[in-house]
Design a protein around this nucleic acid. Structure first.
Lengths: 229, 229
DNA sequence: CGTGAGTTTGACCGAACTCAAATCATGTGG
DNA sequence: CCACATGATTTGAGTTCGGTCAAACTCACG
């Protein structure tokens, strides 16, 4: 779905001859429409670390990825979760400014930054697309700032559930929760206990239902929207 | 200082003939090296509002600007302060996703987005520069996420003071605080009372000195760095 | 001077955190 | 297929940091 959006915003299908030529040699084409290859990562495996050289740009083919930063004493803040089609790890700086790990087993497509750099020089639309990606992330980060700085625990959890629900492609009654309570807590700037308590509170209030801890039914979407503020 | 960095990252001084020609007609050239004009804003005046059409891109010539979002009930989160040389209001979307206001009286340079769009098509380096700007903002937002999600009040205030100190060009002993306590609070996700109390606590601890509320002397920079985590 | 906005300080409160125990889930070997 | 072990989640009890409400203070400006 994100991949579709990217394709739409792409000015033209990239007529770099080197690209067309290499197409048959690469294992896969990423959401970036650039030659690359794929890798698989198992649960909790590191994809790249903060401070490492930003050699590649990544696209989620399947699975879920988290990007985060940690303080010396272990406090962790997850800045975002990335789902199928999402691009991540795209940095302007030479080094990655956050770490990325697999939340679930996942398949990731990698594109060399040098390849991307060359493409941007030849195709102005490509540079624009990169700008668009950075922009989208910035927009998400801004929304997240409001959540972390000003929202209460219930509001944070409600916002999170709506966000997840919107991304869940197969819109069954139940939203699948791919990440642990710890991940949710570190994303929302709360503790696992508060996340858990808030979820059961929302269940008592009839807003959601918790068949098991990895599946949530949004029973009263309006109530959640009200909390989303 | 930010303007200098922009100039450095610029591939070439833009040889768009329309630009060279129009140069003498415009009142000023912004940090974006594009034809534009300047406007002045008085204290607390709105520069643009959330949801308004993003017709211009802005550069601070002098003064300080804040960008923020508000919830229906008035809770406000300031995402960043912009100082001389900083570009702001650069959106990918058709509308601004936050509001911008003058913290102090300021002089702002405006460039039409359509002009910028044309330039990016003709000059790949320009698109890259825009990407770089978005990237820089993203990087700041990420750091701010960690602050809002995981840091204590003292840590937030210490981080803020260091940030301000680093930006204050004339490095006198005293850091000038251009914004009100309310602005600081809404930037750090705290209340004005907590900001105030934390500052006096830091003073008692000998880390800083408060000659008056708009001027702070960093007496023990190491202690602040330790808190910056 | 007097006024009023902005800031500081104080007393109290409460939402979220901490520590700890109970419960649930998941995978493993018998 | 079940019993157990291990980790994840939930629940409980008590604490704390930062918020709220209110009063005092500062200072710039008329």
């Amino acid at each position: 779905m994100e991949a579709v959006m990217l394709a739409q915003t792409q000015t033209k299908p990239v007529q770099n001859p080197a690209f067309a030529q290499s197409k048959r040699f690469v294992q896969v084409t990423s959401g970036l429409d650039a030659p690359g290859f794929t890798m698989t990562f198992s649960r909790d495996e590191e994809i790249y670390g903060e401070g490492e050289e930003a050699e590649f740009v990544y696209t989620v083919v399947s699975g879920v990825v988290r990007t985060h930063r940690v303080l010396d004493d272990g406090r962790r803040q997850i800045s975002s979760f990335h789902f199928a089609g999402d691009v991540f790890g795209l940095e302007m700086s030479a080094e990655h400014l956050s770490s990325a790990e697999a939340v679930t087993p996942c398949e990731i497509s990698l594109v060399k930054r040098t390849v991307l750099d060359r493409m941007t020089q030849e195709n102005p639309g490509c540079a624009r697309q990169l700008w668009e990606l950075a922009s989208r992330e910035l927009s998400h980060a801004r929304a997240h700032l409001m959540l972390l700085g000003r929202k209460t625990a219930v509001e944070r959890v409600a916002t999170f559930l709506i966000e997840l629900g919107d991304r869940d492609e197969d819109d069954e009654a139940a939203v699948k929760i791919p990440m642990s309570r710890t991940d949710i807590a570190d994303y929302l700037g709360l503790t696992i206990e508060t996340v858990s308590r808030t979820l059961t509170q929302l269940e008592r209030d009839g807003a959601i239902e918790l068949p098991n801890c990895r599946q949530i039914i949004l029973r009263n979407r309006a109530a959640l929207d009200r909390l989303d503020a």
